[in-house]
């Protein structure tokens, strides 16, 4: 199940989209989130879909692969669709089921809103599929740097994020090992009442907490002996290079927005 979850995954590659500055990608996604709302009829939505398909192609991602990823949020999409189908009124009555009616306006709005949602999810997925979590963290740190003026600990938050990302696989492994060890001792997690199931989690969580605290302590010492003293006087190994193509992406994004705005009715 989890292996099908695409949102938040990264697939290494060397496409033009992969090579864009992560800051450009984040800003472009934010712009897209606004632009999506400009579309209000078939041509607009058609253009949005075309845009996403082009991006997918440029990022060397298989469309099937991407739409498989959408399946996971299918329920959310269906829910949105049916909400509008039943609740939006107007136009001709298509089905009259007594206490509920489906009207043409409902069908159209349902389709529009669902497309809108799907496009938003898809563009975010394309971004995370083509940008390593580490690059995203770097980009967020740079973009948020002005917030330091109002005392937001941007550097610390970014470091925390990158360390968390680094330890996720380690902790997953650890959890799996502990589950197996307790299961070999006859612990069952999938049987009995809710209380007994919750109780069965104690033998997993306690060892996990203890080892995590130990890790945290050792990691803190390791960071200290390697001279970590906060952001003061620190240089950066990773640099983000804003190039002409990154500026171009944002300009294209704005032009795309203007087109959608102009053709709206």
């Amino acid at each position: 199940m989890l292996s099908k979850m695409l949102l938040g995954r990264y697939i290494p590659g060397s496409s033009i989209i992969h090579r864009l500055d992560p800051r450009a990608k984040i800003i472009a996604v934010v712009l897209f989130m606004v632009i999506v709302f400009f579309a209000n009829h078939w041509t607009g939505y058609g253009l949005l879909i075309l845009f996403i398909l082009t991006l997918t192609k440029m990022a060397d991602l298989s469309p099937r692969f991407l739409f498989n990823g959408l399946k996971l949020i299918l329920i959310l999409l269906l829910f949105t669709f049916f909400m509008h189908l039943f609740l939006t009124k107007g136009g001709t009555v298509l089905i009259d089921g007594g206490f509920f009616t489906i009207e043409s306006e409902g069908v159209i709005t349902g389709i529009y809103i669902t497309i809108r949602l799907a496009m938003l999810v898809l563009i975010t997925t394309i971004m995370t599929l083509t940008t390593s979590p580490l690059q995203l963290t770097d980009a967020i740190e740079r973009i948020c740097r002005p917030l330091k003026a109002i005392r937001v600990p941007v550097h610390e938050i970014a470091l925390m994020m990158s360390i968390s990302l680094r330890f996720i696989p380690t902790l997953m492994d650890e959890t799996e090992k502990i589950i197996k060890a307790q299961s070999a001792r006859g612990s069952t997690f999938m049987a009995g009442s809710l209380t007994s199931r919750l109780q069965a989690l104690t033998p997993i969580f306690i060892p996990l907490f203890i080892s995590s605290f130990k890790r945290a302590e050792e990691l803190a010492i390791a960071m200290e002996v390697r001279g970590y003293q906060g952001e003061e006087g620190r240089t950066h190994y990773r640099v983000l290079n804003w190039e002409f193509k990154d500026t171009m992406v944002l300009i294209l994004m704005i032009i795309f927005g203007i087109i959608l705005w102009v053709i709206r009715q």
Binding site: K177, A181, A184, P203, P207
Partner: peptide
Amino acid sequence: IHQVKKHVGMVFQFPEHQLF
């Protein structure tokens, strides 16, 4: 499966990590 686990004991690597 439970029956098998009863008869076949397993000492994992670093078993002290399973104490709770």
